[in-house]
Design a binder for these strands. Structure first.
Lengths: 349, 349
DNA sequence: GTGAAAGCGCTAACAC
DNA sequence: GTGTTAGCGCTTTCAC
């Protein structure tokens, strides 16, 4: 069976092509091509014959040929860090649906948060002749953007927004988001705030969030001490361990701000394990608003990010660019703060 | 900006191709091609010149050309129902990683559980000349399989397993899985068992699970009454509503068996809302073992399915087929029953 | 080991 | 409206 495929690919009796259809219908290949793209451009008589021939022969056009001749692959690429994080899988799904409705197909790769790998994947996509490309984040070497420039295809960076962004982008300001969160956290009386976050060196969104946190604290005359930050992988267990590390050092924080909901869930569990009451003794804040956030015990306060909207807006931007339509290239989406039971006022000691 | 792309695509000063490289290196295109595929097949002197030319010109080979000439796209397709369900996004991610390591790229589409759409997506993939295809489930019209047959590419159906499967497959028997679950549930003393499940008419795995449930009950002299089944969308809220519907009818079940963990989570929440104690008054069983299962309150009993393993095994099978290696085409993966606090003995009334 | 040249399946300019 | 034809960028015989 396995062998069959290999053999058959090579020696396959040249599968039916446009010329076979043309011959069967007694027309030229050009007419078949015209029929394929816009049936109304050929006469009814011819139309029927071509249609019949296509059905008869089970003709499936070969897009590689088409791509070569028309310089359009009708493929759009997307590279996301991972599909294990629901925010990206949701984004990709919506992206794909919108592309499909416009006749494009999705070439998908994951970078696993590895810049090196992301670059290689992008290169492969360009080799495949993608008509456009969606990326996550903006932090990458200049060779990357130069490569895109040379390919001169539209691309967009997502989960990033700044009015003055150098590149087209679609997202929100992580800095502003966290600034606002922490402003409110301080307002609730918290002074000793711990942070559980992903690794900032690999991910520009994490760095921006930290910046926002620091900014807010500074404005309130506070400072984010190094021993109040626990860097962690984006897993449930790592979140719990991160809290454990935080608790080992100095005075216990009254609030923990987390880089995402998975980490926050881990923190919640670890807190329960240690008999620390949430939110009475410890307030916990997530980020992302995964479906699970509201189901946790206690329900998790978090920041709702519009995952689907980002996927859709990215698709819309790229499609507009491809079709030559005028379109906004710095797209801000709304986030929402969801205050649930996991977060409360600072306990007065 | 938008316009720029369109214009530039059409009028782009023919980007650098293999002949440019050949010219720059003072060799034939054949030699460049040889160098690309196996540097050792050209002399060291020539090798250096070609390598330099490629760097110099930033040459990026165009795979459409290659695909046309070599009859290999180096693209593999995957169609899954959705990426919103973590089992599929996990599977896809692993699938993609394994493909990438072998030099293939992933073309991805979702069917949204719509057979019609799945068929169209599959067709598009064949148009793109995918070298192989991964699908979910086996229930589809014969035109579908005939189309694949004509394309004569290897494909595999996943989340399905049967020794005697007509098509290559990789998964487990949903029927056996649920039979074993229910056998045990009955052993725990449950006689009045409710089922919250997805829609069986669109999904062969759901149907198989129901079959397994019925079979187990029958062996124990029980029967699955129609009013003990609640069909539901695969969402959290729908799971809760499904439980509500079940409770409206007749005597309250002592156990609820769910089609997946999301539904089960909804059931759990609805039960709490109604002050029904889990597991004392109502036992709840999920399916799939998502990360959240163990975090729910109480921790959810469920069936662990090897999502990554399925993605990997599917990739391995397809790659083996493509490379002409002998390979098992009916692959069974192990599932594991996770008994956690949400499930207990039937209460004695 | 290397080059020349004939396509792969399709589109698009041009001529009718 | 329709057909002819010259490529698109690459691989792959086949000679040398």
């Amino acid at each position: 069976m396995a062998v069959k495929h290999r053999v058959s690919r090579r020696s396959r009796s040249r599968s039916v092509g446009i010329s076979d259809v043309a011959a069967a219908a007694g027309v030229s290949t050009a007419s078949v091509s015209r029929f394929m793209h816009d049936p109304m451009r050929v006469s009814p008589k011819l139309r029927d014959r071509v249609e019949a021939a296509i059905k008869e022969l089970n003709y499936i056009p070969h897009r590689a040929g088409r791509a070569l001749a028309s310089r359009q692959s009708l493929i759009v690429g997307a590279i996301v860090p991972t599909l294990e994080n629901a925010i990206f899988s949701r984004q990709v799904m919506t992206f794909q649906q919108n592309l499909r409705d416009a006749g494009y197909t999705l070439l998908l790769a994951t970078s696993e948060y590895d810049p090196e790998l992301e670059f290689r994947q992008a290169r492969v996509m360009l080799e495949h002749g993608v008509d456009a490309l969606m990326l996550v984040g903006q932090k990458r070497g200049s060779e990357f953007y130069e490569m895109l420039e040379r390919a001169s295809i539209p691309f967009i960076t997502t989960w990033i927004y700044s009015k003055n962004s150098i590149h087209p982008c679609c997202g929100f300001s992580h800095e502003t988001a966290m600034k606002r969160v922490v402003d409110y956290v301080v307002e609730l009386g918290h002074r000793n705030i711990g942070v559980v976050t992903g690794f900032a060196n690999v991910n520009d969104r994490v760095a921006a969030r930290l910046k926002g946190i620091r900014k807010a604290l500074k404005e309130h005359g506070l400072e984010l001490m190094r021993d109040k930050i626990a860097y962690s992988e984006y897993t449930f267990d790592a979140g719990g361990e991160a809290l454990a590390r935080l608790l080992e050092k100095g005075e216990r924080p009254t609030a923990i701000v987390c880089g995402n909901d998975i980490l926050a869930a881990g923190v919640l569990t670890e807190a329960r394990k240690r008999n620390i009451k949430v939110p009475e003794e410890l307030s916990v804040m997530g980020f992302g608003d995964l479906d699970i956030a509201a189901q946790l015990d206690p329900p998790l306060s978090t920041v709702r990010t519009p995952k689907a909207e980002i996927g859709e807006a990215a698709a819309t931007y790229l499609l507009n660019s491809l079709e030559g339509r005028k379109t906004e290239s710095r797209i801000e989406v709304d986030i929402k703060f969801c205050w649930r039971d996991s977060f409360g006022r600072a306990s007065k000691k």
